[in-house]
């Protein structure tokens, strides 16, 4: 028995499996498909319905075009969107991990100071400020990305959920690797001459610390900028 509702859901799922189609786009196209179905269902021949539900769905879906072709058209309208969304996830993952690390460190510092009977006020102040920064950044990013409906809601199909999860994990790893690559390099760039004999890394100095924190963001911003520039040029080329 043909079930038109499950066919529509299947069609929507195939559309959403494409990375460049946002949930909002799928909503709009689903409404279009349903309007088409309504019009076709109303067709009559000799006083009875002309088309079976299966035929109606087939024609309506065909009119909208194959889902992959449709998705490709969407990608063309904004080629940078997919990458911007990936960078948002990446940044989110990076901030999320930084936040988790600060949280654990704070708890550990407080516990350590407490167990040694020491005053750990300074440690708490330092790490609370990092915590606060992390929290503001994560919340801000989440709000911004939800407003631009960038990382689509996760409830749309198992396939999308798996893809998104794999995507976040992969991109977070890239972000961590990026930071790991910068950590040994940054102090070397900020060497302090200690007499004439040794070069001592000055990772403890505030600007070294700041550069460690800022470098991944600067790198990300640069990557986004390069990516946009490349894609914008690609868009203006006649196809």
């Amino acid at each position: 028995m043909f079930d038109i509702e499950s066919s529509i859901q299947g069609w929507r799922g195939a559309l959403l499996a494409r990375e460049m189609v946002r949930v909002e786009d799928a909503d709009e196209l689903e409404d279009h498909l349903r309007a088409e179905i309504e019009d076709l269902s109303a067709l009559q021949r000799g006083g009875v319905t002309a088309l079976s539900p299966e035929e109606v769905f087939g024609i309506a879906a065909r009119r909208l075009g194959r889902t992959d072709a449709l998705a490709a058209e969407f990608a063309k309208s904004d080629p940078g969107a997919v990458w911007r969304r990936r960078w948002i996830w990446m940044l989110g993952g990076y901030l999320g991990i930084g936040f988790a690390v600060s949280l654990i460190t704070t708890v550990a510092t407080v516990a350590y100071g407490y167990s040694r009977g020491q005053d750990s006020t300074w440690g708490v102040v330092l790490y609370s400020s990092i915590l606060l920064f992390g929290l503001i950044a994560v919340v801000g990013l989440a709000r911004w990305s939800s407003r631009s409906s960038a990382p689509a809601r996760l409830q749309d199909g198992l396939v999308r959920r798996l893809r998104t999860t794999a995507g976040i994990a992969g991109l977070t790893l890239v972000a961590i690797a990026l930071k790991a690559a910068i950590v040994p390099v940054a102090p070397m760039l900020l060497l302090r001459m200690d007499g004439v004999r040794t070069f001592e890394p000055v990772a403890s100095m505030w600007y070294a610390q700041a550069s460690l924190w800022l470098a991944p963001f600067v790198a990300l911003a640069l990557l986004i900028w390069f990516e946009r520039g490349r894609l914008d040029r690609g868009e203006s080329r006649p196809t």
Partner: peptide
């Protein structure tokens, strides 16, 4: 017009 053509145009004009 095809749907694949119209919606990207609408979204671009919106942007």
């Amino acid at each position: 017009w095809t749907e694949g053509m119209l919606y990207p145009v609408l979204h671009r004009l919106e942007e």
